Amino acid sequence: MPRLDTISRFLISVGIILCSAVGASAQDRRQNAPGEFDFYVLSLSWSPSFCEAASERGNNGRGTQAQCGGRPYSFVVHGLWPQYERGFPEYCQRPSPRLARSIMSSMLDLMPAPGLIYNEWDKHGTCSGLGERAYFEAIRKARATVKIPEEFLQLSEPKTVAPDELETAFIKVNPGLSNSAISVTCDSKRLSEVRICLSKDLQFHSCEEIDRRACRRDQVLMPPVRGG
């Protein structure tokens, strides 16, 4: 009987390994293949949190200065990220096609740091299956799809907010957006980002895995907009 029990456990273990391998190979068949993904995540970073955290770390590099100078940024675009239902591709072309400086400059109103724009193209844009100009046009269209609640456009004082309350505010002003298509991320105390899932044609899209990685704090701090 002990021998049979050992054999049974061994066979079960082999079965689990084989099933895992099959699942991995199914993912690997399109892993990092440009254009082969399920949906996008539009990531909107709360710029005052980014700048406050950078200051605490002593990070005053040129990229940080570009975003964290005197201009009153609120939500800025971190990126538009191709996603699988489980996991995501990245760096789908090595080396990546060089991004034209004129395209980078044209995006500074939404993504106020040149280094961020170049990195987003290398890491995420190359996975979209789009050319450089079309990818950044998609970012602009995706951003235009999402309305920011008015109370967060000119935040003049620190605000403490529950992540659920923030999601509800976005859902209220964006018809068709549900709480299964939006998540809030945070660091140890501050709001970091609002992430909204969009289909390839930039319609709101349910994304359970993104929601599972959401902030679990009861409340988060939103530092005020600079100059507010």
Rank of each mutant, 00 (worst) to 15 (best):
S25R: 14
A26L: 13
Q27P: 00
D28M: 14
R29P: 08
R29L: 15
R30F: 07
Q31D: 15
Q31T: 04
Q31H: 13
Q31V: 04
N32V: 05
N32R: 09
A33E: 14
A33F: 05
P34C: 10
G35Q: 13
E36W: 05
D38F: 03
D38V: 02
F39H: 12
F39Q: 13
V41L: 09
L44E: 11
S45F: 01
W46I: 04
S47H: 06
S49L: 00
S49I: 02
C51K: 05
C51T: 06
E52T: 12
A53I: 08
A54D: 10
S55C: 01
S55H: 13
R57W: 10
G58Y: 09
G58W: 05
N60G: 12
N60Y: 05
N60V: 12
G61P: 13
G61S: 14
R62H: 10
R62T: 14
R62E: 15
G63Q: 13
G63V: 06
Q65S: 12
Q65N: 10
A66C: 07
Q67T: 12
C68L: 10
G69H: 06
G69K: 08
S74C: 03
F75Y: 09
V76A: 09
V77N: 01
V77G: 06
H78F: 03
H78S: 05
G79I: 03
G79Q: 01
G79L: 03
P82A: 05
Q83H: 06
Y84Q: 14
Y84S: 07
E85M: 01
E85V: 09
R86G: 04
G87M: 00
G87R: 01
F88N: 00
F88D: 00
F88Y: 06
F88E: 00
P89T: 08
E90G: 07
Y91E: 11
C92T: 09
C92E: 08
C92N: 09
C92P: 03
R94I: 06
P95T: 02
P95Y: 10
P97A: 11
L99Q: 12
A100Y: 06
A100M: 06
S105G: 03
S106V: 01
S106R: 11
M107K: 00
P112S: 07
P112F: 03
P114F: 07
P114W: 02
P114A: 07
G115K: 13
L116E: 03
I117M: 00
N119V: 01
N119R: 15
E120F: 01
D122E: 13
K123Y: 00
H124T: 09
G125T: 04
T126A: 04
C127D: 07
G129W: 08
L130S: 11
L130V: 05
L130M: 15
G131D: 14
G131E: 13
Y135D: 03
F136D: 02
A138S: 11
I139Y: 08
I139V: 15
R140P: 00
A144W: 03
A144Q: 07
A144Y: 02
T145I: 01
V146W: 04
V146K: 03
K147L: 00
I148N: 08
E151Q: 11
L153I: 12
Q154S: 07
L155S: 08
S156R: 12
S156Q: 14
E157W: 00
E157M: 10
P158W: 15
P158R: 13
P158Q: 12
T160N: 11
V161K: 13
A162D: 11
P163M: 13
D164R: 09
E165H: 12
